[in-house]
């Protein structure tokens, strides 16, 4: 590969990886505060993608005349509705299991994952839905690399949201409460922190970010399919583990890294090897650096 091709693959990887990072936020934040791998996150990402295109469709001529505004409305509605879905999932599938052994909510999260995906499959008849082309498809030549306006928008939105979430976690009162629960679940309520409420907020925030990621994915590839949450969810999980699960900036770092690796994989290897490469990364991280790139050792608290 020439240097410009390599650079192009890195840029492509960063764009895709920023979307994975956005999904990974939900995994990492929920794990951080209640030590649960919430596999439903992948289904919420898919749900968000479908709700986004559905809202865009419902807006009808308003959206066709003002596509960018329509998209903004669609992504906000999708994020809010998916956050409500995340609330429902937490309320029904996890909260009753709060005192159960850790494996029980994990299995429950897998059940939610398959339930949501199956519902989407049934409702849509397993037909892919087409996302509108909102921005010009004409690529920009930026020195040695080319990027479409859509790709630039995706990376900017995803990274801006991740920075905003990180700021929220680090510098607001609610964010500090989240970190307090993560650091010491037992003594957080003694400060007056309503743990249940903070856990709910965390789930909803993770769901909203997954929904935005789903819409961004839809815009990027033009179509969404009923099984997109399976691969997307697992790649994002890999990103969360790679970055250091429980670590918010780690979601970004992990997402971008996985994105770049899988982007190279599609060039160097036949296309169908992409999944093998991503999950090879997952196995390698778990074997050699289970705390991830930015995470601390979690063995003692897992």
């Amino acid at each position: 590969m020439s240097p410009s091709e390599i650079l192009q693959q890195i840029v492509n990887g960063l764009v895709v990886g920023s979307v994975y990072g956005l999904i990974a936020l939900g995994y990492t934040m929920v794990y951080g505060i209640i030590r649960l791998i919430n596999f439903a996150q992948g289904a919420l990402y898919e749900l968000g993608a479908y709700l986004g295109v559905a809202v865009f469709g419902l807006l009808g001529t308003f959206a066709t005349r003002n596509p960018i505004l329509g998209l903004v409305v669609a992504v906000i509605c999708s994020a809010l509705a998916t956050a409500a879905g995340a609330y429902l999932v937490e309320r029904v599938a996890y909260r009753p299991l709060r005192s159960a052994p850790p494996l029980t909510p994990l299995v429950s999260s897998l059940a939610v994952f398959f339930l949501v995906i199956s519902i989407i499959q049934v409702v849509t008849g397993a037909q892919p839905l087409t996302y509108p082309q909102v921005l010009s498809p004409r690529p920009w030549n930026l020195g040695p690399v080319t990027l479409t306006p859509t790709e630039v928008m995706i990376a900017v939105v995803a990274i801006a949201l991740m920075v905003a979430v990180n700021f929220y976690v680090q510098h607001t009162k609610t964010g500090r409460a989240m970190r307090a629960i993560a650091a010491n679940t037992r003594s957080a309520p003694l400060m007056g922190i309503n743990t249940t409420r903070i856990v709910t907020i965390t789930f909803m925030l993770g769901g909203a970010m997954a929904a935005v990621a789903g819409v961004l994915f839809g815009i990027n590839y033009g179509t969404v399919t009923y099984n997109m949450g399976e691969f997307g969810g697992l790649v994002a999980f890999t990103a969360a583990v790679l970055g250091g699960i429980g670590n918010v900036p780690g979601a970004l770092v992990g997402g971008l890294t996985v994105g770049v690796f899988s982007s190279f994989a599609t060039v160097v290897l036949p296309n169908q090897w992409q999944e093998a490469v991503v999950f090879g990364i997952l196995i390698a991280v778990l074997a050699f650096r289970p705390q991830g790139i930015l995470g601390e050792r979690v063995a003692d608290r897992a």
Binding site: A183, N184, R186, I193
Partner: peptide, 25 residues
Amino acid sequence: TLVPEGRQIFSALTVRENLLLGGFC
């Protein structure tokens, strides 16, 4: 207000953040 047995501070947070959490309400 309870100061629990074994201190139960928030080890991963700074001293300042621990104190601010004490004044959470």
